[in-house]
Design a protein around this nucleic acid. Structure first.
Lengths: 165, 165
DNA sequence: GGAAAGTGGTTACAATTGAAACCAATGTTA
DNA sequence: TAACATTGGTTTCAATTGTAACCACTTTCC
């Protein structure tokens, strides 16, 4: 690289944008790095995509959920859930049975195999999280928790009430 | 919804995973909410995708960059940059000229029009960020900054040294 | 100076994703 | 009980994205 503008003293107008300090950008880079690393870890071991793993994570704790329940729980959309469910069925990680009370509704659960895999992924996931958290002090962990909560509410408000202006 | 498992007292085994408290998951939801809202705001106004806007944001501060320089600056990959550049050229938001010293290299800059659009987006972006930040106290803003830095380093280390175990 | 290796950038193709249309079952209204 | 609207879930099609192959130019090293 011949011209290195990175460190150049480019005039920074008062209203230039410093991307590397711009919160939405930083969140996006951080989230992608983390998700990709983890997805890679259990994706290769168990042939799971992120959406599929999320479905399993919910079913592991809350049995007898329908696809619609999952949509609500995970904030993923219908189509993503539908695809995740069908790939999990193909792997025999979950079972599906008709709800006699409402024949549109399909009740989902982890299969034996699914529970097995779940039991092996959970510690793995926790290990990754712990490794991330280990870079923070105890106080920082609490701070992060409450900060995320606040930012989430704010961003949620955008979606509900419409955007700024 | 008839069966509400959300609030049900499902037995939570000690090593169940609480997705809603799982940091990677929370980061992903937060980042998607924020990015989508903002992309929507300037996407519809100026026909910009997120990668394209990022390219403009960098060129606004650092003129005369090549695509390779942009790759380094933004942590996006070659192909994404190439596509963003070609869409920006189509919109006449940027200009491209050959570097006489190295004829593989293309020097990029905002066009008049591009500078115009840039000048209008920057305040918009800043407004969104300010709105997000307004949900945090001053101390929290500082905390967030340093926390992100630490998490980023950690996740970066995964990518470089390989994953855990 | 000429092969081999490296770099800047684009293209091609496959996999992922999202929006909208759709089917089937249920609920509602009259 | 016939029409209409709603809900659960899947399919279809187009747009986005990622990986790998590729072309053109430049550098290196004998």
């Amino acid at each position: 690289m011949t011209t290195d503008n990175t460190t150049a003293t480019a005039a920074l107008a008062p209203d230039d944008l410093r991307l590397e300090k711009f919160l939405p950008y930083r969140l996006s880079v951080l989230s992608n790095r983390v998700s990709n690393a983890i997805a890679d870890a259990y994706g290769t071991r168990f042939h799971l995509t992120i959406p599929a793993w999320r479905v399993m994570a919910i079913l592991g704790r809350f049995p007898d959920m329908s696809a619609a329940d999952l949509v609500e729980q995970t904030a993923m959309d219908k189509v993503a859930i539908s695809r995740a469910v069908s790939s999990l069925l193909k792997n025999d990680y979950i079972t599906r049975s008709e709800d006699p009370a409402d024949r549109r509704r399909q009740v989902l659960n982890l299969s034996e195999l699914g529970r097995d895999v779940y039991a092996r992924i959970v510690p793995l996931a926790q290990q990754y999280e712990a490794d991330l958290m280990s870079s923070l002090s105890i106080e920082e962990r609490g701070q992060l928790d409450s900060i995320i909560e606040k930012l989430m509410d704010r961003a949620q408000a955008w979606a509900e009430r419409g955007l700024i202006d």
